[in-house]
């Protein structure tokens, strides 16, 4: 059975997205992508050094992958839009992860400025994936503004605390027609599987890989967990209950 994720007209077999910010060496990005089979990779344009004679992060991204530059460093819509345009002009394609953060202590996104950015960039033909706080009203507006997917956070960036926003993300999955991709906070493969079991379309990880002792093996572990979670979602999980269920029904006699 084919189960492809369609975003902006692209069909993706892998539902693991990878961030590139924190690795010990740039070449690890290639190894991580190869072992995990991930097809979408995000790169902060602020770190891309086109003039560098040294290795360039973009050189480590295989052809088969979709490059999704992000607007890291943008403090408002105006800056995010400018970074997105620079990214496209630099030949980084037309996918853009909108990241507008005016809070360096918690790195929590600004939904208002993010929405403004989505409106402008979608109008300019970008495939826009906004990183956001999991707020239903904001998500609906992102959808109306032309976002290709939404990327709510599971927990603040880099915390590895897991799907702390579960209740809210479940609502987004239920109510938003766009793919919901959990971005940030996912610390372990089991948490990635949890997101997928809920019906999220994909998961984006960076810190969980980069901070592990063996990022490449961890990437494979995430890839397997994402597949397992997806399969479980498609198979339809049985409902969870707190108490044990009686194996001999009490109302059987009514049907007898």
């Amino acid at each position: 059975m084919s189960d492809l994720l369609n975003i902006g007209g692209k069909e993706l077999a892998s539902r693991l997205f990878v961030g590139t910010g924190k690795f010990a060496r740039k070449s690890l990005v290639r190894e991580v992508l190869e072992r995990s089979g991930a097809e979408v990779v995000t790169v902060a344009l602020r770190r891309v050094d086109a003039d560098s004679e040294d290795e360039n992060i973009l050189d480590h991204i295989p052809e088969r992958c979709i490059l999704m530059p992000n607007t890291s460093g943008a403090r408002n819509a105006e800056e995010a839009v400018r970074i997105a345009r620079l990214a496209r002009a630099a030949g980084c394609g037309s996918w853009i992860k909108v990241e507008v953060i005016a809070d360096n202590k918690y790195l929590l996104p600004d939904n208002t400025e993010t929405l403004k950015t989505v409106e402008i960039l979608a109008g300019e033909g970008f495939t826009v994936l906004p990183y956001m706080n999991p707020d239903l009203t904001a998500a609906r507006r992102m959808q109306d503004a032309g976002a290709a997917a939404i990327m709510p956070l599971g927990a603040p960036i880099g915390t590895n605390r897991g799907l702390r926003t579960r209740e809210l993300v479940e609502i987004l999955v239920e109510e938003i027609a766009l793919p919901v991709i959990v971005d940030a906070g996912i610390g372990s493969p089991s948490e990635a599987a949890e997101c997928m079991e809920l019906g999220c379309a994909a998961v984006l990880v960076n810190t969980a890989l980069a901070a592990s002792e063996d990022p490449v093996s961890m990437a494979e572990a995430f890839s397997l967990a994402v597949k397992a979670g997806r399969l479980a979602y498609l198979a339809g999980k049985g409902p969870k209950t707190k108490e044990a269920e009686a194996s001999s029904p009490l109302t059987g006699f009514l049907r007898g």
Binding site: F23, R25, L45, R46, R47, V48, D49, G73, L86
Partner: peptide, 20 residues
Amino acid sequence: IRAMLKEKGYQPVLKDWMDI
């Protein structure tokens, strides 16, 4: 310094912002 950082398992970042 770059060689030392790589040796220690750290990525030297020479560019982390741009004029926007």
